[in-house]
Design a binder for these strands. Structure first.
Lengths: 248, 248
DNA sequence: TGTTTATTGTCTAGTTGTATAGATAAATAG
DNA sequence: CTATTTATCTATACAACTAGACAATAAACA
């Protein structure tokens, strides 16, 4: 029924974390559907050959993550862990996409700076020199961090984008303030990698977690690139769907 | 010079392990060539904002792994960490391949059992029913575990393969004992994934490590499949090269 | 040459985290 | 009422991390 369970002692990785990762893996792999009951703590303790308290540490971590839900006297259950779906199409707006799936989304400015346009950023924005504004931000859905993003804009085109974004928490609103009433998604590239240290902090992940990386170019209605952005989504909490006219 | 360094406290992953993983990552990513000197312990301690003893734990782990080498009064250096290359061609023999790179290789029988031929195994071996012998083994190079493998054989074709392999530690020898003097590699598929618990044990890896998975079919000189094998290589210690007439 | 400086190695000590063991309470289902 | 299951508590042992001091080695310098 369950795959062989081994843990490595004295590896620098706590046993409770190894167990938590295995259980989370089983759940996200679909071995345990939403609502399914976990074996009781004593059974798990025997199966992993550890103390019951160690199992409880693992369960506590997953409960805090929202993956499990423990009910005294009844058992421990797989929480409603439906992933959010980030559907990418020609008109892709963070808050609109999630509006039907969560109660509230928020964009938080983490930092910004001016950089010289160079390399892939310059290429994506169609710039030959000049300066770009870089904005680092993160997004929450119902209070849970779901993504963090780095976006680059042509500094000449949208000089006040930082302040506008800080106030509104929305790229769409910040661009509108710069006279760009509408924009379209021109291209999206999706990759996956281990979360780096910064992702871990902002998305509240544990080391070894996986992030989906979406690299996108948005253009104005004349087709001129206005934003180049790289977003990292916690792969545990989010999946990405590509709409129609397959855009890559 | 060095990418931003963050560590996550109280994550269930010891700080020394997080630091060791980052340093090892820098080295295998080529940021620190073989022989390069690491910054002194006090500098690293400041950079990671941890105690010097914690840095020493990370360095000790990497020294034990053979990745670093510390010299009192001089500094800590990147050891000669050249990966072994597993070159796959039509004539692929584990011991022959590594013969020029290491002093000594060994095959160790971990376990075996009889299974009903089914699914991908039956398909690969061209069997419609009957039984297969499954052998789990691991390989060491100069005493260091470098791979573990699961191989399936048609039980009717090589009935004594287990005993022959146990004695010789060599598939080539075991097949010869069954009258198969020579064999060829027909196909190889290579993938990568996180090491599972069994890989961790046998290859002495730490949780989160990555393994290269090679799935291969060997055929006799008449082209009949005789072995279907899935080998897992520690991606830290081994890389795979594909020879000529690109076979996939 | 001897001296200073930079670096790794070793030691003691205290705090917090991790894992074990055992006992008991509280809630649920039958 | 009873059996099952999660929740709490005490206690012990060891690992992990911090802090500070000093020894040992190597290289650079006067």
């Amino acid at each position: 029924m369950k795959s062989a369970r081994f843990i490595t002692r004295n590896s620098g990785v706590a046993i409770w974390r190894q167990i938590a990762d295995q259980i989370r893996g089983d759940i996200t792999a679909g071995k345990m559907p939403s609502g399914a009951r976990l074996p009781p703590e004593v059974t798990l303790a025997e199966r992993f050959a550890v103390n019951r308290h160690t199992i409880r540490s693992a369960i506590a971590a997953l409960t805090k993550e929202g993956v499990l839900r423990a009910e005294q006297g009844r058992g421990t259950f797989v929480a409603n862990s439906k992933k959010l779906t980030y559907r990418i199409g020609e008109r892709t707006r963070f808050s609109e996409i999630l509006a039907t799936q969560v109660r509230e989304t928020r964009g938080i400015l983490l930092g910004h700076r001016i950089e010289d346009a160079a390399g892939e950023v310059a290429a994506a924005l169609g710039m030959a020199g000049g300066q770009v504004i870089r904005i680092d931000s993160m997004h929450t859905a119902d209070g849970n961090p779901v993504s963090c993003a780095t976006a680059w804009f042509d500094a000449a085109r949208v000089p006040n984008v930082v302040e506008d974004y800080r106030v509104s928490g929305s790229i769409t609103a910040a661009l509108k303030a710069a006279g760009i009433d509408d924009y379209l998604r021109k291209s999206t590239i999706i990759a996956a990698r281990h979360a780096d240290a910064e992702d871990l902090r902002h998305l509240r992940l544990s080391p070894g977690a996986i992030v989906l990386v979406s690299t996108a170019i948005n253009v104005d209605m004349d087709g001129h690139p206005i934003e180049y952005a790289r977003s990292r989504f916690a792969a545990d909490r989010m999946e990405i769907a590509i709409d129609g006219k397959s855009m890559v």
